[in-house]
Design a protein around this nucleic acid. Structure first.
Length: 294
DNA sequence: GGTAGACCTGGACGC
DNA sequence: GCGTCCAGGTCTACC
């Protein structure tokens, strides 16, 4: 079936897909220049696996779904795409600030600022843990392994798999996760997270929709094993809280090159570079035109 | 609250 | 081929 998700301007599907590396991770699939993407998803309603092809149209985005879906399933797909394409983020206040800064002034014109997310916060947390202390190629490999090994397959094409649910990742023991998916020391982190979410002990929907102040939300994220300062800030960015900067070795490098002539910098220097943007400093860091190509 | 050391894996690099 | 280093960090023990 086909459905259209109407989206008000400014919006650019390509800008969302280019917002970070998530589109390169399974079960996403896309080719540069990222004008469309596909995604394999296991629906909560009926637990059926569906395959979507999403592309930009004049009114918003068009979604082609393999097979027929009922009304509840269609509503779920619309809700998930709204999350994935970050459609509820209000960028107007940030655009007002950004147009005063030459390194950010491109944003409104190019409809940048929306950050690609997975269908669920659970998937985003697992993927974020997979980015820590590894090369990007390692992140791609580990996420692909989790999807291929534990995600339910698409009936029409068994080579395609959805991202595993918390129950599906809680099922294998830690040693199996470590050995089969080659997660290394991250295996117990993923296992514990999956078990806590599956049992209801950790309510990620409540966390995501909470109106708690950002420092308290950050504290809840830091309580998840495997989520440290960088990962928590990254996840806060994904759920629309932009007042922390995900400081990793990449951040240290780009800030060093941009503001300190390549001299070594510390996390405090990264904070200082964007402090003037207040609650938007994570956005300013994330979308700063470091290489002058925007 | 701050810091040193250990931690899985796999690719890059030097020999 | 083989050994070493380290990559888009985090945890634990210790001070």
């Amino acid at each position: 079936m086909d459905l259209t998700l109407p989206i008000e301007a400014p919006f650019s599907l390509q800008s969302v897909l280019r917002s970070h590396g998530w589109v390169q991770l399974a079960p996403f699939s896309a080719e540069t220049p990222y004008e469309a993407f596909t995604y394999t998803d296991q629906l909560a309603h009926g637990a059926r696996v569906t395959f979507w092809t999403v592309q930009s149209v004049e009114e918003g985005v068009h979604v082609a779904v393999k097979g027929e879906v009922n009304t509840l399933e269609e509503a779920e797909i619309r809700a998930k795409l709204t999350r994935m394409l970050d459609l509820e983020r209000d960028l107007a206040p940030f655009y007002t600030i950004a147009e005063q800064e030459p390194k950010l002034s491109y944003m409104a014109e190019r409809a940048r600022g929306r950050i690609l997310r997975s269908a669920t916060l659970f998937e985003d947390i697992v993927k974020t843990i997979m980015t820590t202390n590894t090369a990007w190629s390692g992140t791609i490999r580990m996420v692909q392994a989790l999807v291929d090994l534990y995600g339910r397959s698409l009936a029409e094409d068994p080579t395609r798999h959805a991202f595993p649910t918390p129950a599906e990742l809680a099922a294998p023991d830690v040693e199996t996760l470590r050995r089969q998916a080659k997660l290394g020391y991250r295996a117990p982190y993923v296992s514990e997270l999956a078990r806590r979410v599956d049992s209801g002990e950790l309510d990620l929907h409540a966390l995501e929709t909470s109106d708690l102040p950002t420092p308290l939300l950050r504290k809840q994220l830091l309580a998840i094993k495997g989520v440290g300062a960088y990962a928590a800030a990254n996840l806060l960015m994904l759920i629309g809280r932009t007042d922390y900067i995900p400081i990793d070795s990449y951040a240290l490098k780009v800030v060093s090159d941009e503001f300190h002539d390549g001299r070594p910098v510390k996390p405090a220097d990264v904070e200082a570079a964007f402090e003037r943007f207040g609650e938007w400093k994570g956005m300013a860091f994330w979308f700063w035109d470091y290489d002058g190509e925007e």
